[in-house]
């Protein structure tokens, strides 16, 4: 299985502010009633975007900028802290990715969301609080300027600005070397796996 090396994402960006945005908000549970991930893209942030009366609510995902990202099938979402907390549902990053987001920049990410995203080949880079505020403001003020998320150099840049970014070393390694989906590596270790299993009484049924 050969995967693309993801060293850089350069695309238009959308700011979706707020801390502790949970995966129930990203994709409400009723859309988990499915046996495939197909079609999840259009329901990303559904209940934030549409009111109970069926009318559109003011939400960044309803903007023209979001529509451009959906059309281009690439985009950077700039978020707050603890993004993607709550449920482990991979449906959350799947829906944003299928919508068109190919990178996230935020203050921090909930761990399961982070793992689910990077395993899809979607980098999640963190910025310091001050830099994030600056990046967020820049993105809103300059919707036509592409943002570059550089996984190799660990920077986020836009226009004349460059911010220092972070990501777990193992995730960075996986993305830039085209090994973000670990299955190939995991399948290689069969003998070692059997050895570990053999040392565990409960696996042997004792």
């Amino acid at each position: 299985m050969s995967l693309a090396k993801i060293t850089q994402v350069k695309a238009l960006a959308l700011a979706v502010p707020g801390d502790d945005i949970d995966t129930d908000r990203i994709i409400p549970a009723r859309f988990l009633r499915c046996v495939t991930f197909d079609g999840l893209g259009e329901h990303a942030f559904r209940d934030e975007r549409t009111g109970p009366d069926g009318k559109e609510r003011p939400h960044p995902m309803n903007s023209a900028q979001a529509a451009r990202i959906a059309a281009a099938k690439q985009g950077v979402m700039v978020v707050g802290f603890n993004f993607g907390c709550g449920s482990s549902r991979e449906h959350a990053p799947q829906s944003l990715w299928r919508y068109g987001f190919t990178a996230f920049v935020g203050g921090s990410f909930a761990e399961i969301f982070f793992g689910n995203s990077t395993t899809l080949g979607v980098p999640c880079l963190t910025l310091s609080k001050e830099d994030l505020a600056e990046c967020d403001a820049f993105v809103r003020a300059n919707p036509d300027v592409e943002v570059t998320v550089d996984v190799e150099k660990l920077t986020v840049s836009a226009g004349a600005k460059t911010w220092k970014a972070g990501i777990a070393a193992s995730a960075r390694d996986g993305l830039v070397n085209g090994k973000w989906d670990p299955i190939a590596d995991l399948l290689e270790g069969t003998d070692a796996v059997a050895k570990t299993a053999g040392g565990l009484a409960y696996v042997a049924g004792k």
Binding site: S88, E90, P93, I112, P182, I183, L187
Partner: peptide, 13 residues
């Protein structure tokens, strides 16, 4: 807790 792709990893390996 794990994501669905990881469920695949555990099933397969």
């Amino acid at each position: 807790g794990i994501g669905t792709t990881q469920v695949r990893d555990v099933l397969a390996t």
